[in-house]
Each structure stands twice: as C-alpha cells, then as structure tokens.
C-alpha cells in the first residue's frame, strides 16, 4: 500500500498548525496518522461520483442580522485576559513579515 502520509507531510502540517515536533513525536505521529488514514481508506470502496458534498446537516439559509450596533466589550475586561498588553493594545513579540 502506498504511504498515506510521509514524515515530510507531517513536518509540513505541523508547520501549518504551528506545532513543533521532536524526532520521537514525528516518528510516532507519522505512524499514528497513517493508521487513521489507512482505516479511512475504506471509503475508497464507495462510488462517490456525482454525490454532492454535505457541509451542513440541517438546511438553514439566509440568516441575516440587522445592522444595529450594540455595546461592545469593556476593554479592560478583555485586556485583563491577555498575556501582555501596552497602551490599550495587545502586545506581541515582533511580527517579522507581513500577512501572507
């Protein structure tokens, strides 16, 4: 059976997920994820041609809210939960580079 997920793939998804893995974890997670994907391979037996995708189990549509402002949150209450703040803002280590 073809390798369903490689170490290289796991390194990539760990980066996408902003996680760092030790060598041992990389090894372990790669084989565990491969097991799950192997199990999921049972759906390959299904004929899914022309089957539409379902993203929502219950059909609700056009849910709209009136454009009426409501009082927001108290800044002090919100900032009290933040790891680091400065001058009414959330402080973070330097962001190198712009948003992708």
């Amino acid at each position: 059976m073809a390798e369903r997920i490689s170490r290289h793939d796991v390194v990539h998804v760990a980066w996408l997920a902003r996680l760092e893995l030790s060598d041992e974890e990389l090894e372990r997670f790669t084989s565990q994820l491969a097991d799950v994907l192997d199990h999921a391979a049972d759906v390959e037996a299904l004929d899914l041609d022309g089957v539409p995708a379902t993203s929502h189990p219950y059909p609700v549509g056009n849910v709209l809210r009136d454009d009426v402002p409501e009082p927001g949150l108290d800044r002090a209450e919100v900032l009290a939960q933040a790891p680091e703040t400065e001058a009414g803002q959330f402080r973070v280590p330097p962001v190198r580079g712009e948003a992708p």
Partner: peptide, 22 residues
C-alpha cells in the same frame, strides 16, 4: 498566545505561536 490563555514567550511572534501551542 496573543489575546488570552497561555503564552510561552519567544523572540518572535511566530516562534511564540509555535512554543505556546506546542
């Protein structure tokens, strides 16, 4: 690690994200 909950300090924002989540 930006707005609430745990933050593991690191020199840059990305490193901080990674360290915190890890």
């Amino acid at each position: 690690g930006v707005r609430y909950g745990l933050r593991v300090p690191a020199p840059g924002a990305v490193d901080m994200n990674v360290a915190t989540r890890t």
